[in-house]
């Protein structure tokens, strides 16, 4: 990794109702906004929408493609927009800094997720150990 490097995009989705039902069960996140259209509409939403943590799980897969999983030291994201039903999610990253800490070389990455309509849904940063 070098500063300024754009990392390979990872694309997941489109998000179907089945995607959300499976993820709700598998992730223990049973908040009905994501799986019950009646509940979501009563709460003022257009319909069910994607769990933020589903997109974050996909972003974790992208991170693993960029650096081995055991090299991930810390990361955080802000959920900046709802990920609508049927959206495709594009996970992207860019190396912003190479630095040394705790006796190892590390890279700071600017990371995010965007829908196919180019709405940014996740915006964050990750620190990974590099060779």
């Amino acid at each position: 990794m070098v500063e300024g490097q754009h990392l390979a995009e990872l694309v997941r989705g489109p998000i179907t109702r089945a995607t959300l039902a499976l993820f709700a069960g598998a992730s223990h996140d049973h908040v009905p906004l994501h799986i019950d259209s009646d509940f979501a509409r009563a709460a003022g939403m257009d319909d069910v929408f994607g769990h933020g943590m589903l997109s974050m799980a996909w972003l974790a897969q992208a991170l693993r493609h960029w650096a081995p999983a055991e090299c991930l030291r810390s990361w955080n994201v802000r959920f900046t927009a709802i990920t609508p039903l049927h959206a495709t999610v594009h996970c992207r990253g860019e190396v912003t800094e190479i630095f040394a800490a705790d006796g190892e070389r590390r890279a700071r990455l600017k990371i995010g997720a965007w829908t196919d309509h180019d709405i940014q849904t996740l915006d964050g940063e990750a620190v990974v150990a590099i060779d």
Partner: peptide
């Protein structure tokens, strides 16, 4: 539960 949104999430390993 009808009023929540996930605002931010971070992890340190």
């Amino acid at each position: 539960m009808g009023k929540v949104l996930h605002g931010e999430q971070g992890f340190t390993y």
